[in-house]
Design a protein around this nucleic acid. Structure first.
Lengths: 243, 243
DNA sequence: TGAATAGTGTCTTTCAGACAGTATTGG
DNA sequence: CCAATACTGTCTGAAAGACACTATTCA
């Protein structure tokens, strides 16, 4: 896009002012080992970089040469760090201010992604690690304003899980209803009623049984898979009376 | 993060790669003359400007010298065009791509604002006009991707009105319950049950009666005002069973 | 008085909450 | 058999839908 930039400069001259830095960050969630986890990247230790060695959300500058738009930039960052294309990627919001990046006025476009549980969901990159989303204490200090962004992502996820089928995107290809309920409970951090849960999920036309059962130490459970559903289901009520 | 490519471009302290343009746009809603309306600005007729004379959302470039952050930039644009500070301003999302602005890669941070109905809610600026939000047809061609942004704002507003008290911010300082219901119905474009509506609103601890009544050609109605409520109320159910 | 709108009451429906009870496996 | 987990049924309660009914003003 060097062309456009030159054109801009020889126009009425109105574009010759300082531009903020533009970045994209992605909050990537997964459920592993029974807890909600988020992928973080360790920043380079180079002391000339901002926040050296601190943990940060995966992300970085928009590359005007490679990224057609913000969403594809987010997809690229996601793929760089995990090797996968998420079945669910949603815009979370944007954060921009004069002070959030020591290098100058900057604005980031934040996305959040849900990855399906997989037997060996390792962080793809060497500088990447999964961190459990602490239920309160033990908060990590993150680079930039990423702690705030992460907090917003968790809130958004929790809030949407109350009345949508989002957790379906956190499931492996085949799962049982109790599995799904467990994931809801992990994200919401509270137990749900089994009976109401089953009724709602089955009524939602969201999942379909496959011709197999999950065997275990007790009664086998019906396996389901996600229907070829484009978008999440919105329920008319939340799961429990609101706070 | 600095992946390999960015490291190459951006040695320590080097940030000299092309930066996208950064703008903020605001979708400003009001209810006037019984319909939901949105404020649009006519772009300059100068043929060197993009989309000359086209209607656009109020907005513009972030001014790194004046704007401390995105939100204050949005507040500034809102005040420039309407002279008021909205009681409700929410981030809507961001749109960025190589092609949305002919001047080059650009990203806009979109907000939406709700203005209280006022007897003489004129558009403050000369190039500004209120346009009814057409229920379907008669769509205006807007500059940039603003039609898409407006569409998203309307959807977001409608969706949130289903289960929040957002319309309270569209009301004048004092209003009756039937007034409020009318605004809900205008935004949702469908009738609501009076009885359920009243019950819900009065239970929400959102409004309080003032010591006056609205007189009219028929039975007077109790006037209410918004309680000093910081944030909108979220209801546990939507108003009607979903489609 | 009647028209018009505000506001209430009552019955029904829907669906979650609670929880007991049945079903089906392995040991 | 028992333990464990999957799944179903039944009762209750809260809140919405439907709609009739009462209340209060003006003309």
């Amino acid at each position: 896009m060097a062309d456009n930039r030159e054109k801009a400069l020889d126009g009425p001259g109105r574009l010759d002012f300082p531009r903020p830095l533009t970045t994209v960050d992605v909050v990537i969630f997964i459920v592993r080992e029974g807890v909600l986890q988020v992928l973080l990247i360790q920043r380079p230790t180079d002391e000339n970089e901002p926040f050296p060695a601190a943990w940060a959300l995966p992300g970085g500058f928009v590359d005007t040469g490679r990224d057609a738009d913000l969403q594809s930039c987010a997809v690229r960052k996601l793929k760089d760090k995990t090797g996968v294309v998420s079945p669910y990627l949603e815009q979370l919001g944007s954060w921009g201010s004069a002070t959030r990046d020591p290098r100058g006025w900057s604005a980031t476009h934040a996305y959040f992604a849900l990855l399906p549980a997989a037997p060996l969901a390792s962080a793809g990159a060497a500088d990447a690690r999964w961190f459990p989303v602490g239920t309160g204490k033990g908060k990590l200090k993150l680079a930039f304003d990423h702690a705030e962004i992460l907090e917003a992502a968790i809130q958004r996820l929790r809030s949407k899980v109350e009345y949508t089928s989002l957790p379906a995107y956190l499931m492996p290809p085949e799962f049982t209803l109790p599995d799904l309920q467990r994931v809801y409970e992990i994200v919401l951090d509270r137990p749900l009623e089994k009976s109401a849960f089953r009724t709602r999920m089955l009524a939602a036309d969201l999942i379909e049984p496959v011709a197999r059962m999950r065997k275990g130490p007790s009664r086998p459970a019906q396996l389901y898979r996600l229907k070829k559903t484009k978008s999440p289901i919105y329920f008319a009520r939340t799961f429990n009376p609101p706070t």
